[in-house]
Design a protein around this nucleic acid. Structure first.
Length: 516
RNA sequence: GCGCCCUUAGCUCAAUUGGCAGAGCAAGUGACUCUUAAUCACUAGGUUGAAGGUUCGAUUCCUUCAGGGCGCACCA
């Protein structure tokens, strides 16, 4: 690491100084260490595929290729040198032979280091050990690495790559994601899988005539969820603005406007703690569909998850795994997912006829027995939720819809047809975790106003997670909002579930971190 | 927020009841024209996270602080 000295000069450590010296040596020889481009003819994997499998003892020759990438392994043997070059497709071995490449170019190799970006051209051949290799005829420095990348060494044991002295400090890997990515192909693959998953979700929704929209991130009022927001200030308007905690209220305004199927994939921001499953900004998918109820939305969710899972599986299946790195096979979804009735499931698990008929004291006792801490401070809805979590939710392994939540647990959902004590709401659980939350959306402006006013009272009483009355949203709803089904899916969490990633830091390229 | 654990070279890790701070890789020099965790020889690399305390002597014991990890709690 370089450190600023009190005098303000950069004190390079010996490793970086050695690389600076090599840079100077290149310059002295008239070699530009930072090039403007390179005419690559093949990616590494494509080049390797050009040479057919060799028969026993046969020395196959292949066509000439031009490859470019980063030096990830270097083995010099005097007048001959082997190296490996890595690019997005994989890696290919390079062979430099003094007699072949010439004295002048061969001596250039003294200025090369692990991590340098180079371009090489030459014919392909198969070495004695059978590895397809570029016999270098020309080599170009494309970008000198002045700082050493934390490369480990790799060997292949029983077809599995084992890494030694790996760059494994999770915090450093997140802080310097560029180095993490540069050194770990499987991390690049993981984020390609994430991108493929999101592309697949877009494709699915677009296919059924959903419109992708963008709604404000900066909002004068926040709502659509219960969370503490980030606050900022607009100078010219001299007013506070909030970073959104949910997209919901704007997307439903669009439903009112006649954009009958809309979705948004974007960041929500919640001013809460950071841990294994929470990042202050995270990716949320919300989609709303006019004239749909929660039954139809369940079908949508099933199909969407199949698309997402298939997309992840396609990318994750491309390359063989690296031991010690999470590369679990994504779960294969088999719709329709089972439906579990909230009331029946909980009552059954607790061994009572109807849990809703228990009084609050009985619920508290049951919660205490189930190991819920501080039961005396919990409200009745909270007790029900805790009991459900302890008895049912935590035991759900394969994807399962939990349907028809009690009204007191679901302030934003429409009452269930035929049973106003329940709501038309579902959540999807798998591996004990929530993957989706959805309901038949409230579209009665008078009811909506009452709920806003209740929130406003909480806010006035000092609850900074409560929101205020959104008059503009009420005005929209007063114009008439069609019956609508809506779904929210946390993209980071879904991706973690599909890839078996246990830390949200490993599912987000640049997670929020304390400054160094 | 509460509990337990961790922080030593660029990277990954050692260091016996408290007794000279070490190894492998990476780096430098040299040898080596089919190697692949290349090999061999030599060299250099450290305020042991920070501050304080106990002690003849602290990486080791104590206190405080900072950063991190894992549980629990809350949420997506």
């Amino acid at each position: 690491m370089s450190e600023k000295t009190p005098g303000g000069e950069i004190d390079l450590n010996f490793v970086m100084q050695a690389r600076r010296d090599k840079l100077d040596a290149l310059l002295e020889r008239g070699v530009a260490p930072f090039a403007y481009g390179f005419d690559r003819s093949h990616f590494a994997a494509a080049a390797v595929a050009l040479v057919p499998p060799a028969a026993e003892g046969e020395h196959t020759e292949g066509p000439t290729v031009r490859v470019a990438g980063r030096i990830v392994a270097w083995r010099a043997h005097g007048k001959t040198t082997f190296a490996h070059l890595a690019d997005p497709s994989g890696r290919v071995q390079l062979y430099f032979k003094k007699d072949q490449i010439g004295e002048s170019q061969y001596s250039l190799l003294d200025c090369f280091d692990l991590g340098d970006v180079i371009g090489v051209s030459g014919p392909l051949f198969r070495t004695r050990t059978g590895e397809v290799t570029v016999r270098a005829e020309e080599v170009r420095m494309l970008a000198k690495a002045l700082r050493p990348l934390p490369f480990g060494k790799e060997e292949v044991v029983d077809g599995v790559t084992v890494r030694h002295s790996a760059f494994s400090d999770g915090e450093l890997r997140s802080r310097q994601r560029y180095a993490d990515l540069a050194v770990h192909p499987e991390v690049r693959r993981l984020f390609r899988a994430r991108s493929a998953m999101i592309t697949a979700i877009r494709g699915f929704l677009n296919e059924i005539d959903y419109l992708e929209v963008e709604t404000p991130v900066l909002q004068p009022l926040y709502g659509g969820a219960t969370a503490r927001p980030f606050t900022t200030h607009h100078s010219a308007l001299d007013m506070p603005l909030y970073l959104r905690i949910a997209d919901e209220l704007y997307l439903k305004r669009l439903i009112v406007g006649g954009l009958e199927r809309v979705y948004e994939i974007g960041h929500d921001f919640r001013n809460e703690g950071i841990d294994r499953t929470h990042n202050p900004e995270f990716t949320m998918l919300e989609f709303y569909e006019a004239y749909a109820d929660y039954e139809l939305m369940m079908e949508r969710v099933e199909k969407l998850l199949v698309c997402a899972s298939d997309a992840v599986a396609r990318v994750m299946g491309e390359e063989r795994g690296v031991r010690g790195v999470e590369a679990g096979t994504p779960p294969h979804f088999m719709p329709p997912f089972p439906r579990l009735d909230w009331l029946t499931a909980l009552s059954g698990a607790m061994g009572v006829p109807n849990v809703m008929e228990l009084d609050t004291a009985a619920l508290a006792t049951a919660a205490e027995t189930a190991g819920v801490p501080k039961v005396e401070s919990l409200s009745r809805p909270k007790l029900l939720d805790e009991l459900f979590q302890a008895h049912v939710e935590s035991k759900i392994d394969t994807p399962t819809f939990v349907v028809d939540y009690p009204l007191e647990l679901s302030p934003l959902a429409k009452p269930k047809r035929g049973n106003p004590a329940l709501t038309e709401r579902f959540e999807l659980f798998a591996s004990g975790k929530e993957l989706a939350n959805a309901f038949s959306e409230l579209n009665d402006p008078l009811d909506q106003r009452r709920r806003f006013e209740a929130q406003a009272r909480l806010k006035a009483a000092g609850d900074d997670e409560a929101s205020g009355v959104d008059e503009d949203y009420l005005r929209a709803m007063e114009y008439g909002m069609p019956p609508t089904g809506g779904v929210g899916i946390g993209i980071d969490r879904l991706f973690m579930y599909l890839t078996g990633t246990s830390h949200i830091r490993d599912a987000i390229l640049f997670p929020t971190m304390r400054p160094e």
